[in-house]
Amino acid sequence: MTLLTPFSKVPELNTATILLVEIEEQLQSKLADVIVHYENEFNVNVRLARKLPLPVENKESRPRIDLIVFIVNLLSERSLQSVESSLNHIHSDYFLGKVCFLVTDARCGSYTQDRLASVRKLAASHQCPVICAEHRTADGIHAAAARLLSILKMSAGMSPIPTTALYLSTLTRCSATSDLEED
């Protein structure tokens, strides 16, 4: 099994690469569009995938991936399952602040709440942040893109101040939510 590793390649100059993983390919391209057109101090490459592992053929030509974003659509069970299986194809180094979960339809009926709870649990056990997105409005996508970019900036080491992805992840990682559910 080929693992995706964060530190095996030399980064390109002034360039950060973000990988959006979504099985249903609904939000992916819209989000990618916004990210690419967002004004940035550095170049941003967006890569799209339906699931991991990535195909072996262009492994060599693929740039170093600085941030993996798993997009989970809470309305579909399949989306969560595919993310769970994809997680196995990532090297553990990625979990030092280079993986993030993006959740859509978080406020859509009570039955998505259970699924949200399991996403949170998954994220908490992998020490990753969970970001909720209002993917139905342009504003929502824009906001989500901005937040992803701010994480990417840290995880790709583009930030001018001395900080690391690991450090940021100690501040943003999702905590276990068992106590929250009581209220």
Binding site: V103, L116, I131, C132, A143, T177, D183
Partner: peptide, 15 residues
């Protein structure tokens, strides 16, 4: 108040 606690956990920070 209780609505806000619930909402904060699903808020995208923009809406």
């Amino acid at each position: 108040e209780s609505f806000l606690y619930k909402f904060l956990s699903v808020w995208d920070g923009c809406l």
